[in-house]
């Protein structure tokens, strides 16, 4: 870990200014991802702006009947909120399917959205990795890629967004609220928040440098049955091989997004029209462009089978 300087910001605008004003500066929220990566010198910030005093830790009702979740609300607090549990079950379920109790206590809403990939080559600084070091190559494509993306990847990078919460937020059509150094707010639909790797795999999201996430807002509740199904080798404390976030209405229509398969939560709204016809009808179009590797080809049928389980459980209930 390189040496850095540290400060605690008092207001969102001050924090955004502090990061924008200094090259190499980064926000520090829970630290559960950033500090991990700093120890390995995968992240090498020269200055940390600790955001814990920004008072962005409340969950409030919005005028539109939705919820506004402060950027610093912990994963535990978010999943525990009675409104979230009642009206946005898929979100609570996704969160508690992730990481561990200890990590969720520290992990923040913003930090969780911005957690970086768990690609093992990204984590090993001896290895070529375009995401960690642009232009160095991608060791994963012809390497050990069991965990990695099957769709939306590029010949530069096949990493996945490893998180669970974002998959649920995608199904809920959440919006990421930000503020920049000039104090200007911006609202980014979750669909546009994470990027595909393309030729710039080192850029995970569409946040501008120094742009601070202040909140995530949820639209009005959708009703229906909320499911988050996470498939993994070990029963807990493991990242998803494939996950499904779904909100299914009683008439069989619904929304669905997949985790563990792409550089961002994978959802194509048009594919959802086929929900009443069953899982295969949906995934055929959702994964039409899948280009899995030898190691992760199983994820495509697994995605279909997982969605089938989700639908079947609903029918059984």
């Amino acid at each position: 870990m390189r040496l850095f300087t540290y400060e605690r910001a008092k207001t969102p605008a001050e924090a955004a200014r502090a990061v924008a004003g200094q090259p190499g500066a980064k926000f520090l929220a829970g630290g559960t991802n950033l500090i991990d990566l700093m120890k390995l010198e995968i992240e090498t910030p020269t200055h940390l702006v600790d955001v814990q005093d920004l008072k962005l830790d409340r969950i409030e009702q919005t005028g539109e009947g939705g919820l506004k979740i402060g950027a610093l609300v912990s994963n535990t607090a978010l999943a525990s909120d009675a409104r979230v549990r009642r009206d946005y079950g898929v979100l609570a379920r996704a969160i508690v399917a992730g990481a561990s109790g200890q990590l969720r206590n520290k992990a923040t809403t913003a930090g969780n959205l911005l957690q970086r990939t768990r690609c093992p080559y990204f984590y090993d600084t001896n290895m070529p990795c375009n995401k960690r070091k642009p232009g160095s190559g991608c060791a994963a494509i012809a390497g050990y890629s069991r965990q990695l993306a099957v769709i939306g990847a590029s010949d530069q990078c096949i990493a996945t967004h490893p998180g669970d919460m974002a998959v649920a937020l995608r199904v809920l059509d959440a919006t990421v609220e930000t503020v920049n150094a000039a104090g200007e707010p911006r609202a980014i639909p979750i669909a546009d928040f994470h990027r595909l790797p393309g030729a710039t795999p080192h850029i995970d999201t569409n946040l501008a440098p120094g742009e601070l996430i202040t909140a995530v807002t949820l639209p009005r509740p959708l009703g229906g049955r909320h499911v988050y199904e996470k498939v993994r080798d070990r029963a807990s404390y493991a990242f998803a091989l494939v996950s499904v976030a779904a909100v299914i209405q009683w008439d069989g229509t619904g929304r669905v997004a997949f985790g563990g398969v792409a550089h961002k939560p994978w959802r194509i709204e048009a594919a959802e029209a086929a929900m009443p016809q069953g899982a295969a009808a949906v995934t055929t179009s959702l994964f039409a462009d899948a280009k899995p590797t030898h190691d992760n080809a199983f994820k495509v049928p697994l995605a279909t089978r997982t969605l089938a389980a989700v639908i079947a459980e609903g029918n059984a209930a």
């Binding site: 093992p120 984590y123 070990r234 493991a238």
Partner: peptide
């Protein structure tokens, strides 16, 4: 490259309580 790729306790999974 000739190495064990999943060389940490997140990559090399051992059983947990669950």
């Amino acid at each position: 490259f000739g190495f064990f790729v999943n060389h940490d306790l997140a990559g090399y999974e051992v059983p947990v309580h669950a």
